[in-house]
Amino acid sequence: MSGNDPVATGVTVFLVVSLAPVVLLWLVLRVPTVVRRVVDAARADGRRRRPPLPAGPPLERLLADLRRLDRQRRGPPPPTRVRRVALLAAYDDVLLATCRAVGVDDPPLRPWVDRGGTAGALDPGRDLARLRTEAELEATGVRIDPPGPAVV
């Protein structure tokens, strides 16, 4: 007489009553994860969308480098031509990276850098392109030489 056993019925009722709240709580906590997985699986591409990774260094670091190189460029000239060309080439690279970071699409300096590399860093035409690129960058709200106390 398996249907009339009071001990088995009592143990079964006890287990259902004691475990039901734990199982229901576990399900409530897991439902958002399950729903998110179902929605991700139902997407057309089947991949999870992640936020885009930054293409380069943070803007704050680019601006700090740009301002440091600008101070060096405007200060006393380096003792050798090689150092002057290297300083201008580094400044141009950071200037173009900053333009890319803030969304300046086609800076005037880009063709000079692509065409000339470091060899033409001292060309007067490149100086003009550098100045125009700085103006476009400052038009976006980025200050290359912000006002403040003079650094000695």
Rank of each mutant, 00 (worst) to 15 (best):
Ala129Thr: 00
Arg68Asn: 12
Asp45Gln: 03
Thr140Trp: 04
Val38Met: 00
Leu122Thr: 09
Arg81Lys: 13
Asp105Cys: 05
Cys99Asp: 02
Arg81Ile: 15
Glu136Thr: 03
Leu131Lys: 03
Ser18His: 11
Ala90Leu: 06
Phe14Tyr: 08
Val22Thr: 11
Trp26Gly: 14
Leu24His: 05
Leu24Gln: 13
Leu27Lys: 13
Arg74Phe: 06
Ile144Val: 14
Gln72Cys: 13
Asp127Asn: 11
Val34Gly: 00
Val104Arg: 07
Ser2Val: 08
Gly120Glu: 12
Pro57Arg: 11
Leu122Asp: 14
Arg30Cys: 07
Arg81Pro: 01
Arg50Thr: 08
Gly10Lys: 10
Val31Thr: 12
Asp45Phe: 01
Ala44His: 15
Gly141Gln: 01
Met1Asp: 13
Val17Ile: 15
Asp5Ala: 10
Ala139Lys: 04
Leu29Lys: 07
Thr133Gln: 02
Pro146Arg: 06
Glu138Cys: 06
Pro6Ser: 12
Gly56Asp: 09
Tyr91Leu: 12
Val82His: 02
Arg126His: 05
Pro77Asn: 07
Leu96Ser: 05
Asn4Lys: 11
Pro77Leu: 14
Val22Gln: 04
Pro149Lys: 07
Val94His: 15
Glu138Asp: 03
Pro79Met: 14
Leu137Ala: 11
Arg100Gly: 08
Ala121Trp: 00
Gly103Ala: 01
Thr140Gln: 10
Leu63Ile: 14
Arg126Thr: 01
Gln72Met: 15
Ala129Gln: 00
Val152Pro: 15
Pro124Lys: 02
Leu15Ser: 15
Asp106Lys: 03
Arg132His: 14
Ser2Ile: 11
Val13Gly: 05
Ala135Gly: 07
Gly103Phe: 03
Glu134Tyr: 04
Pro54His: 06
Pro6Glu: 13
Ala135Met: 01
Ala150Ile: 08
Leu25Gly: 14
Pro21Met: 09
Arg74Ser: 14
Ser2His: 08
Ala97Cys: 02
Leu88Trp: 02
Ala55Met: 05
Asn4Pro: 02
Leu27Pro: 04
Ala139Asp: 15
Val22Asp: 05
Arg30Ile: 01
Pro32Tyr: 05
Leu19His: 10
Pro57Cys: 00
Asn4Cys: 09
Phe14Glu: 11
Pro124Arg: 11
Val7Ile: 13
Gly141Ser: 04
Gly141Leu: 01
Gly125Ala: 08
